[in-house]
Design a protein around this nucleic acid. Structure first.
Lengths: 192, 192
DNA sequence: CTGGCATGTCAACAAGTGTTGGCCTACACT
DNA sequence: AGTGTAGGCCAACACTTGTTGACATGCCAG
């Protein structure tokens, strides 16, 4: 039996398939991204895709594995948390098309939407809980509305004024919003 | 020749097709909403759809005609504009599934995304221009990020904490955000 | 009644989909 | 050397899609 020391040759093509899948799921969505196109983009036969990932559903699940990499906010001053998150979102989104694949697919595909909710529940919600235990779940939901709204209009719909904003502008505008959602008073419950 | 006084009988089925199309485009997105399913939902033959609307593309265009019905804000006090818009969004969204059809389709379908940008340019942008001429286009874009983000998380992804918020909570949380985007100072340009 | 047009149905086409099984090739081990 | 096996390709399957053309049915004018 071959040793597992330096990885089998198949691991390379498996990774090539995953890269192609992420790219096509991101640009075309779940249904338009065909197995044949993914295979062609990876330079192999469609049957290979089925060999390594059983079916399209599981291929997507493997390609849509995603870590938000929410930064540790313990060190940052409380009043800068909003800006910090806004900046992080921009940075995280630009380098990785996985989240776009997930977002595009989640809109029409059940499993992708489930995954999105799962990421929310296991990654965003706990992070918010650490910052603002009071009404944490609602606050996390509000952050999601603004952050995903930015992603939708900027990377998917490409609304001109939103794509035109540079990193600094996004941080300057969205920072205060996120700050308020995270640490602002609960409406109707102003501090006395 | 038949008089056009009371509309031809075909207008009824044409409207039935449009209603079914809106419903299926809204719940399934562009590619998953098949002509056959739309026809079945309308209780007629698939060929009828082609007779009345040439092809799927044009059927969608007809079904996705949409008016945001942005209320006239001349009467409302300037500091309540944000809350007013937030409330209007919730109301407008619940009664009409056309916008959901548009949103779901826009994510994977080019023409739908174009339509979305067009609605932004012809309906939202002018309304913002009337309120805040300074930096109006950017402000309109920011409003779009928050409003579409709410729509996405609440009606499409159905993130539990977002669907759990009632109308009042949405207005209370999003109102100030929209207010700031519309009438707040331009970041880095605070009034002296 | 008879023609003609609007309204509708049926069956089929060509293309594209996910998926499968058989076959080939090259390399690692004995 | 021979051989087993992992990696890869080809052709085909069953099915669904948008779309089309031929054929039926009703209704109104003459």
């Amino acid at each position: 039996m071959a040793s597992t020391i330096k990885g089998r040759r198949s691991d390379a093509t498996k990774e090539a398939i995953l890269a192609a899948a992420r790219e096509l799921f991101a640009s075309d969505g779940y249904e338009r991204a065909t197995i044949r196109a993914i295979a062609a983009s990876a330079g192999i036969d469609p049957a290979m895709v089925m060999r390594y990932f059983e079916n399209k559903e599981k291929l997507f699940a493997a390609a849509a594995e995603f870590d938000l990499r929410i930064p540790d906010l313990a060190g940052t001053p409380r009043e800068q948390i909003g800006a910090r998150i806004a900046g992080h979102v921009i940075d995280r989104w630009d380098g990785d098309e996985t989240l776009m694949a997930l977002l595009r697919a989640a809109v029409t595909h059940q499993a992708a939407a489930d995954r999105m909710r799962e990421i929310f529940a296991t990654q965003l919600r706990p992070a918010v809980l650490a910052i603002a235990p009071d009404e944490a779940v609602t606050r996390a939901g509000l952050v999601a509305t603004q952050v995903l709204g930015l992603a939708l209009t900027r990377y998917v719909l490409r609304l001109p004024p939103v794509t035109a904003m540079d990193r600094d502008a996004v941080v300057a505008w969205l920072g205060p919003t996120l700050q308020n959602y995270l640490t602002g008073p609960r409406p109707g419950h102003e501090a006395p």
